[in-house]
Computed example of a mutant assay.
Amino acid sequence: MSSLSSLTKAELRKYVDTKFQAGASRFFKEEIQVLGVRSPQVKLVAAKFWPEVKKLPKDQIFTICEELWQNGFIEETFVAINWTNRLLKKLGKADFIRFTNWIDQYVNNWASCDIFCTHAVGYLVQKYPELFTELKTWTKSKNRWFRRAAAVSLIYPLHHPFFSSKSSILPIPPTLPISLLNQVFQIADSLFSDPDNLVQKGYGWMLKEASKIWPQEIFKYVFDRRDKMPRTALRYAIEKLPKDLKLKAMSKN
């Protein structure tokens, strides 16, 4: 184990709050390992060691991150994700394989799934559009976190729909590529009848983010399917729509 991962683990344990630890698991239906460190303190620990971590080669940073993932405590995984998300401009297509393995082996709760996939994983899907086919494959996985990840990984492209030639993020233009909306609909179609509540929330969230750009298109998608769409996904999807469209979407055929 590297000295940096050991130091990070020791530093986190200085901030353990036993009262917070006792109640932290109530935010999760699945069983998780919790040290009892509040989010601001987790971020402080990540920031404290980042000046040393960022000097290392990317692969070495990922080795340290994996050591933090492996222990299973959610606060340690949050530090690993924090550092990974700081490396966006250094990420390459090959890193997607590593990230897929991390989801497969270590992700076991919605928080780790979302923080990781709405940043690092989503960035790669945005930068390398051909990786969208991998998301489609994830929708058929037996692993619920892959299925949720397939949806929430599109939230990054929805927030940052264009890159310049230097891969820096550009402002959202008035007209967005319809291919991104088509990808949203493809993922929603693939997950549409998924019985898992957390997967329904995941693709509903994706549709909600898309509705900020294409409100009429998302409304039509939901309205046309309102009698068959799981209510959890439907409620998430229409949350940001105008009130009149919400009422129509909630109506029965």
Results as ranks from 00 to 15, higher is better:
Ser5Tyr: 01
Glu11Gly: 02
Arg13Ala: 05
Val16Asp: 03
Arg26Met: 13
Phe28Gln: 07
Glu30Ser: 10
Val34Trp: 01
Ser39Val: 14
Val42Lys: 05
Val42Ser: 02
Val45Glu: 04
Lys48Arg: 10
Phe49Val: 06
Phe49His: 10
Trp50Glu: 01
Trp50Ala: 06
Val53Lys: 01
Lys58Thr: 15
Ile64Lys: 01
Leu68Trp: 04
Trp69Phe: 15
Gln70Cys: 01
Gly72Met: 06
Glu75Ile: 09
Glu76Lys: 05
Ile81Gln: 07
Lys89His: 04
Lys90Thr: 08
Lys90Val: 09
Phe96Cys: 05
Phe96Trp: 07
Phe99Arg: 05
Tyr106Pro: 00
Asn108Met: 00
Trp110Glu: 08
His119Arg: 10
Val121Lys: 01
Leu124Met: 10
Tyr128Lys: 04
Trp145Tyr: 09
Arg147Gln: 03
Pro157Ala: 11
His159Tyr: 06
His160Val: 03
Pro161Phe: 04
Phe163Ile: 09
Phe163Met: 14
Ser168Thr: 15
Pro171Arg: 12
Pro173Arg: 12
Thr175Asn: 12
Gln183Arg: 13
Gln183Tyr: 07
Leu191Asp: 03
Asn197Tyr: 07
Trp205Thr: 03
Trp205Tyr: 06
Glu209Tyr: 07
Ala210Tyr: 05
Glu217Asp: 12
Val222Arg: 00
Val222Leu: 04
Arg226Tyr: 07
Asp227Tyr: 06
Lys228Thr: 12
Arg231Thr: 09
Tyr236Met: 06
Glu239Phe: 05
Leu241Arg: 10
Lys246Phe: 06
Ser251Met: 11
